[in-house]
């Protein structure tokens, strides 16, 4: 099965709540997009920081899944976010995840989240443990 199809077919309930859709997938690069809906916002109407982190976390975990040996699982053990700019309600955010380290026990990924216009929203670095 195609990797992108694989990611979009896996049932991830929270990703569905977010409205996350994977748009590109390979072992070294995963991309997804998400519309900033009002229920994902804080006051004023910009994307909530938790939603930014959850969006990035899902991408990092998905990228790890594409690199896992058969029969292995993964869990996030560390995550760090720099919030750089706002993503207003109604816009679409785009996430791009690339590897910093892909080891047997842990993998480290960085996710750049931008608006559709290319304005940087956040940069997330997370560590995934291989289970």
């Amino acid at each position: 099965m195609d990797k992108l199809q694989l990611l979009n077919n896996v049932k991830l309930p929270f990703a569905e709540v977010l409205g996350l859709k994977f748009t590109a997938a390979s072992e070294t690069r995963v991309m997804a997009e998400m519309v900033v809906r009002p229920e994902l916002c804080t006051r004023p109407d910009i994307l909530h920081g938790g939603a930014v982190m959850a969006f990035a976390d899902t991408l990092g975990a998905a990228a790890t899944v594409l690199n896992l040996p058969e029969g292995k699982g993964t869990t996030t053990i560390e995550s760090k976010t720099n919030f750089v700019g706002p993503a207003p309600v109604g816009t679409t955010v785009i996430g791009e995840t690339t590897p910093i380290h892909r080891g047997r026990r842990t993998m480290v990924w960085t996710t750049r989240i931008t608006t559709a216009e290319g304005k940087l929203v956040a940069v997330v670095t997370q560590t995934q443990m291989v289970l």
Binding site: A62, V65, G71, G73, T74, T75
Partner: peptide
Amino acid sequence: MTVSSDRFL
């Protein structure tokens, strides 16, 4: 996020 493996079961 956590993704578990069900291969053993």
